[in-house]
Design a protein around this nucleic acid. Structure first.
Lengths: 344, 344
DNA sequence: CTGTTAGCGCCTTCAG
DNA sequence: CTGAAGGCGCTAACAG
């Protein structure tokens, strides 16, 4: 009772309560309050309850900036994404958030817009908050970015892709292998005149890897790609339709098309509808990602399901398992799954 | 030269450089360095250059946790989103990030999973970083959430929706009005037997507002909703197809269907394809959102375009325009646009 | 089991 | 135009 009065006396200007306020109200030292909050060290049950009550009545929320400064451990994980307009990245983020929910870590996201120079700049503003780890989608970095990432004590997970040499942890799938399996799948189904429809690779190195894997599979089977059409910009259903149309104009005899992803393939499917092309009988379509929209098509899309949510989750888990930077490079293969569908 | 040696001497343990290191290297006081960084106060050009050089060679990155603590201004904006799996939220986030890119503010995102209790918990972990403002998608909060949001000095923007009473700033569109206009559009096109296909409203209050607006328009025209079908879970193309199928089984005479959003409508479109129903001639379809996929359909979807990117951008801009909490409630209407399309 | 004493890295205020 | 103190809110040692 008296303690509470004492507290209100203190609050010269009604600001946000701090440890001092809680301590005063609970009649203990700041330090004890801190211990209760962090569950560190042994504390008498009575004391703990008194402190908890004080926290409750004041609505005290610890200031993490102060905590971070004092302990040099921020409970922050930086996340660098190229974009949010391609569904795969939000899905990755969902996985990251889901894994973080169990912990008291927070994600801090930066969007680089597929630009390495921006990545550099955004990374440095993330580092200003001294995260304990960074998750980044991809292996292509500027020299300076690489240097910043090389700060010892900063763990780095490069996600989505495991086809490169990671800085310390890689979590994802081999897009080259997925592309190869796409080729194998089409060949085994008897398709021989195979084409490719894609989008701009400069922003999407993984799409290029899949393409390379596809070509390899065809080469290994004594075949080749009949022709290909690539859109200038990012992937979209519209681009997929237009590019398929262009490809077929040049090569009417093509019997199967591998698309750079499901968005493009969905557009291809729509084109077939409009143009009266019988999908699978006359022209097989194959995508990548396993998005919901592809599976909702009148004919479910044949594709490869990559689990973005899982990648995000695994990345966080792996990162948090290693409190120090791992001595050896770690590669976590989250795999993928061929979805037979009905379009190929 | 000498200065540099001096610096290395200091680095007993090769850690992250601080203001002290920069100051030593540049031969000035910490304070001067701080001023250079923040562009505050007058500084001799020579000094500034010397400091900048030192920062460069050390790769110094200011510690914002420390800055935040010292200045009680965090350059952080908290963002509360219900989910990332519905495209509209990543798009909103893109707008937020785009607006933030010009500034030195950072977004810190929390995902509530459509759960008010979680929102409360996540908000408090965001507040631990003492953001200067919070952006939240929606008006439904628990009492405790409301209390936390009521901290003076914390500016709050509630986005997407302007149909409620904002805490201090609302940015978005009137979903009720958009629903009303959907009804008007269908009526003016001559449709009279109108049905509705939706998803679970408990997670999506905006969808309910659109529905209410729609009903109002029908009522005002002396009509009523013939029937409706609502899926249990979240919106998806699959659910849209299934629900449309169920609705038509009950009410074969329906001539137009308003969907809760484009995902659902796209699924409806696919159902029509499979079932051989002539879209528009026999059955009109109308969506909401104006997603790319809808416009890529063989018949572009008739829908309402809500500009999520703009909402995010405007929210940030409005928030940053007001350095203090605005005295009056502010409502920014970002509007919407009817997309005629070819399905209604 | 609890309190005391120093900082963490920066910014603000006040002197020059 | 620049420097010297002091403190933001918290945690890490030590003591006891």
């Amino acid at each position: 009772m008296e303690a509470r009065i004492f507290f209100w006396e203190m609050m010269t200007q009604p600001g946000i309560p701090t440890l001092v306020h809680v301590a005063k109200l609970a009649g203990v030292s700041e330090n004890t309050v801190s211990r209760v909050i962090r569950n560190k060290g042994a504390i008498a049950e009575v004391t703990r309850e008194r402190v908890l009550a004080a926290i409750q009545t004041l609505g005290y929320v610890p200031n993490r900036a102060a905590g971070s400064l004092a302990s040099s451990g921020s409970m922050l994980i930086g996340v660098l994404l190229p974009s949010l307009s391609n569904v795969v990245f939000p899905e990755l983020l969902e996985g990251i958030h889901a894994a973080l929910r169990q912990t008291s870590y927070q994600a801090m996201v930066g969007v680089t817009d597929y630009d390495e120079a921006q990545e550099e700049q955004i990374l440095s503003s993330l580092l200003a908050w001294r995260p304990v780890a960074v998750i980044t989608a991809g292996f292509d970095h500027t020299a300076k970015t690489r240097m910043m990432l090389d700060t010892s004590s900063l763990r780095v997970a490069e996600v989505m892709d495991i086809d490169g040499e990671p800085i310390d942890i890689a979590v994802g799938l081999s897009h080259r292998k997925a592309g190869y399996d796409t080729g194998r799948f089409l060949i085994e189904r008897g398709y021989r005149r195979i084409g490719y429809v894609g989008h701009d690779w400069s922003a999407d190195r993984r799409a290029r890897h899949r393409y390379e894997g596809l070509r390899q599979a065809l080469t290994d089977a004594g075949l080749g790609l009949v022709d290909e059409a690539r859109a200038e910009g990012r992937s979209s259903a519209t681009a997929g339709g237009e590019m398929l149309s262009a490809l077929l104009r040049r090569q009417p005899s093509i019997d199967a098309v591998a698309f750079s992803n499901d968005d493009m393939a969905t557009g291809g499917f729509f084109h077939c509808l409009s143009a009266g092309i019988a999908v699978r009988e006359r022209l097989a379509l194959f995508g990548f990602n396993g998005l919901e929209i592809g599976q909702a098509l009148p004919l479910p899309l044949s594709t490869v399901r990559s689990n973005r949510f899982l990648i995000g989750k695994k990345a966080v888990e792996t990162l948090l398992e290693h409190r120090m930077r791992p001595t050896e490079r770690l590669v976590v293969d989250t795999g993928y799954e061929i979805v037979e569908g009905a379009t190929a």
